[in-house]
C-alpha cells in the first residue's frame, strides 16, 4: 500500500529550481533513501513530501490508515499540521528546529503525545521514558532542557519525540550526522526494526552512502533538483549507471 505518492513535484526558490518533476511511490514498511550532494534539493523534496512546503507544481498524496487518499495540499493547513503531529514525523537536520529548547526533554516528548490525543499523565511519562531508552538517552536526563544537551543528544531526542506517537511515516533529514558511530548504529537498527516489524515507512535524506546502503531498500540520487537515478539501493550503488552516481560511489572512503 502506498503511503506517500509524489506526482510531478516541483519547487523553485526564486530562479533556482530546487526540485523538478519528482514522481515516485513510497509503500508501507519501506525505507527510501535520498542521496546527493548539498544543494541538490534533498531537503526541499523532503519538506514538500511532508506537506511543510507548498509545491509550485505537482501533488503529494498521503495514503491514510483506512485507505483514504488525501491530496496533501488540497486539505486545510490545520489538517496538514495535525498529520505532522501524529501520523507523520519530521526530523530536522538541525535538532533545534524540531525541539523546544526551553522545556524539558520529557516535556518535548509529552507535548507531542498530548497533541496526539494521549490524556493520561502516567502513560505520557512512561512513553517518554520508553523512547528515551530506545535512543539511548540516559533516563536521569528526562527533566533536563535540550539546551543543556550535547548536539548528538539533541539529535536523539528529536528522533525519540517524533517516534513517540508511532507515526506511519517519518521524514529524516540527515538523522545520523553528528552522532557517535555507536549511537548511529543503534538509531539505524531502531528504524529498521520499526519498519520491518511495525510497518513504519521512512524517507531518509543522507549524504552518507553507507547509511543509505545499510538501511534503505530503494534510493533516489538527486542532482540539481532532479532525480537522476533511482532503484534498488544495492543495484544503484554497486552498478551505478549515471556518471554523477558513479562519481559519488567512487568517492566513498573505504569499502561500502
Amino acid at each position: 500500500m502506498e503511503v506517500i505518492s509524489a506526482r510531478g513535484l516541483g519547487k523553485s526558490h526564486g530562479r533556482i529550481r530546487a526540485c523538478e518533476n519528482v514522481t515516485f511511490d513510497l509503500h508501507e514498511s519501506e525505507i527510501m533513501g535520498i542521496v546527493g550532494e548539498s544543494g541538490s534539493g534533498k531537503t526541499t523534496l523532503l519538506k514538500l513530501l511532508a506537506g511543510m512546503t507548498t509545491p509550485d507544481a505537482g501533488e503529494v498524496i498521503y495514503g491514510g490508515k483506512d485507505g483514504e487518499k488525501l491530496s496533501m495540499f488540497d486539505i486545510p493547513q490545520s489538517a496538514r499540521r495535525k498529520l505532522l503531529r501524529t501520523e507523520l514525523g519530521f526530523v530536522f537536520q538541525n535538532p533545534e528546529e524540531g525541539l523546544r529548547m526551553k522545556i524539558s526533554a520529557g516535556g518535548n516528548i509529552a507535548e507531542r503525545l498530548l497533541e496526539g490525543g494521549e490524556r493520561s499523565y502516567r502513560a505520557v511519562r512512561e512513553n517518554a521514558e520508553k523512547w528515551l531508552e530506545k535512543v539511548e538517552l540516559p533516563l536521569d536526563r528526562l527533566d533536563s532542557k535540550p539546551e543543556e544537551y550535547s548536539g548528538g543528544m539533541k539529535a536523539r531526542l528529536q528522533i525519540a519525540k517524533n517516534l513517540a506517537t508511532e507515526p506511519r511515516v517519518v521524514f529524516l533529514d540527515e538523522p545520523t550526522a553528528g552522532l557517535d558511530v555507536s549511537v548511529q548504529a543503534k538509531i539505524l537498527d531502531l528504524l529498521r526494526v520499526l519498519s520491518s516489524e511495525f510497518g513504519l515507512s521512512v524517507l531518509l535524506v543522507t549524504h552518507d552512502l553507507m547509511v543509505a546502503k545499510l538501511l534503505s531498500h530503494r534510493i533516489m540520487v538527486m542532482k540539481d533538483g532532479r532525480v537522476i537515478e533511482s532503484g534498488l539501493t544495492d543495484r544503484v550503488l554497486d552498478d551505478p549507471g549515471e556518471p554523477y552516481t558513479q562519481l559519488l560511489v567512487s568517492s566513498i572512503l573505504g569499502d561500502a
Partner: peptide, 26 residues
Amino acid sequence: GPREIMELRKNTISHVSQFLRVIPRI
C-alpha cells in the same frame, strides 16, 4: 522493477557472499 526484485529476494532468492555486511551492534 525494484519492488518485484525485492519481492523475489524476500520469497525466492537468497544470496550468500563472502562478507557479512550488516548494521553494527546487532
